[in-house]
Design a binder for these strands. Structure first.
Length: 472
RNA sequence: GCUCCCGUGGUGUAGCCCGGCCAAUCAUUUCGGCCUUUCGAGCCGAAGACUCGGGUUCAAAUCCCGACGGGAGCACCA
């Protein structure tokens, strides 16, 4: 990172408390956090809550929870809204220095003049009384930066710095009604709070000029702004515009639906915080826009999960198998093939269930092995498979998972990509019914296990037991 | 439309600022093999890329120009 010295780096993550955090936020937060750590610096959490219409009280805490879940810790935390008096002070100074003006043009006029590159009369008015601004009604006036109405960069055509919003703020109530815009507070806060390396996503690039111009006008320190591209996952948009309707129309379970890229959704699905971090860091801070496929996240997650998930037998779409001459045995099954996580015991007689997908491949004479038990040869195959015990010797035959009559019925939901060709896919949540061994009782709510040859599944136990498949 | 940004294998990325050590890094993916009482993990191997066209140079993925492609901005939202 340019101009970065150990111990002198300060970064920040500035979410607006208007919703739950998603993987896009995670990218920003992780990058901010990791860079601060890398340089033994300071990482600040700043709530950019300057639009009272958007902010909701619950999200301040919700976002903090999401960050904690991610394993991110911050050294300082504050709200931009708390600094409004300072912002007013600086705005007044801007006015006095002739760098800003109060504009009473209508929204449409402002837009039109911007397009035309034309200055309005307000801009050159002699008196620019800051106090008068506070007496105006919402929509009547705004504070604008005296930029350059002819600039190639339209962001520089006198951007709005403050506007009046008569709406109670979740923290401050009706204490303020004049609120700064992103252009203003973004620059001011970064500078004042000592941020050395603020990161932001590429769509703000055109606003860099405004950012530095404002700081110049006020003789404030200029941080080293950096941009990176937004993270987008194919078939999994993060924008509130696309997600909110799904939640509102109840097309998904809620903001924590396992199909969604919200941190809560991903967590519920069984994606580990550590996987998200690694995945995000893998993308780096390049400016080239990329569409990542979800499989990349899965791959990272799978490797982490492999070393910590207990193995269990789950039989989707069970088919009954009756084994003749079956020895009655107690099978001892390890919870993990290579790490000692204990074992469980299963009493077996002559009746089993195996997955239909395996059963369909067998015909009379086929041999298979009930994994960790013994071999079976197929004698007859109808709706039920009749077979016979065929020895204990380990052979090169399919080893398949099984349950006995002692089992639970269980549903596993399989989340797919929520969007297909830009449209919500109604069939994005599949449900597989099957039988699971009773040892599922040993698994805690929220634990992630591997159902062998089925996939990694997060177990939920609220009322009934159900599984949510993370991925294969 | 105008302005800005971006363009390395199927996907993501390193390298580009400071041209040569790049017959291009790492991961994922796919395919083989090994290992394994899971179609998981691990190990080994293979496949696969500098958008195109000019220019500068002894030498270009790297610098310059142009084209094409993608994205963003043109909000009193961030």
């Amino acid at each position: 990172m340019p101009d970065a010295r150990k111990g002198e780096v300060v970064t920040r993550f500035p979410p607006e408390p208007n919703g739950y955090l998603h993987i896009g936020h995670a990218k920003a937060a992780v990058i901010d956090y990791e860079y601060a750590r890398m340089y033994d610096g300071i990482f600040i959490l700043r709530f950019d809550d300057t639009n009272p219409v958007n902010e909701k009280k619950e999200f301040y805490d919700a976002q903090k929870e999401d960050l904690k879940w991610l394993g991110i810790e911050w050294d300082k935390e504050y709200r931009t809204s708390d600094n409004l008096p300072k912002h007013y002070e600086l705005a007044k100074e801007l006015l006095e220095r002739g760098c800003a003006y109060i504009c009473t043009c209508s929204e449409e006029e402002i837009r039109k003049n911007r397009r035309l590159g034309k200055e309005c009369a307000c801009r050159n008015r002699k008196e620019q009384p800051w106090d008068e601004f506070f007496k105006m009604k919402e929509g009547e006036a705004v504070l604008r930066l005296k930029g350059d109405m002819k600039s190639q960069n339209t962001a520089m055509r006198d951007p709005i710095l403050f506007r009046i919003i008569d709406h109670p703020h979740p923290i401050h109530g009706t204490r303020f009604r004049v609120w700064p815009t992103y252009d203003f507070y973004g620059a001011i806060e970064d500078s004042l709070s000592g941020i050395t390396h603020p990161f932001r996503t590429k769509e703000y690039e055109l606003r860099d000029e405004v950012y530095f111009y404002i700081l110049d006008c006020l003789d404030l320190r200029k941080p080293h702004l950096m941009e990176f591209s937004r993270l987008s996952i194919k078939g999994m948009p993060v924008s509130k515009r696309k997600l909110k309707p799904l939640v509102e129309k109840k097309l998904v379970w809620g903001w924590d639906d396992p199909r969604l890229p919200t941190l809560r959704g991903l967590a519920r699905r069984g994606i580990l915080a550590e996987a998200i971090k690694e995945f995000v860091l893998l993308q780096g801070i390049s400016k080239s826009e990329s569409v990542v496929v979800f499989e990349n996240l899965e791959a990272v997650n799978r490797k982490l999960l492999d070393g910590m998930a207990k193995r269990l037998f789950f039989v989707p779409e069970p088919v009954k198998v009756i084994v003749e001459n079956a020895p009655e045995r107690e099978a001892v099954l390890k919870y993990h093939p290579s790490i000692n996580m204990g074992e469980r015991k299963v009493e077996t007689k002559g009746m089993f269930y195996i997955p239909a997908s395996d059963a369909s491949k067998f015909e009379k004479g086929s041999k298979f092995r009930l994994k960790d038990l013994y071999n079976v040869v197929v004698l007859e195959k109808n709706d039920v498979i009749k077979g016979e015990y065929a020895g204990d010797e380990l052979l090169q035959i399919p080893k398949i998972q099984w349950v006995t009559e002692e089992h639970y019925e269980m549903e596993v939901v399989i989340p797919l990509l929520p969007f297909k060709n830009g449209e919500f896919d109604e069939n994005s949540l599949k449900i597989t019914k099957g039988y699971v061994e009773k040892n599922i009782d040993e698994i805690k709510h929220g634990e992630i296990v591997q159902f062998e040859r089925f996939g990694f599944v997060r177990i939920e136990k609220d009322g009934k037991t159900r599984g949510i498949k993370a991925h294969d």
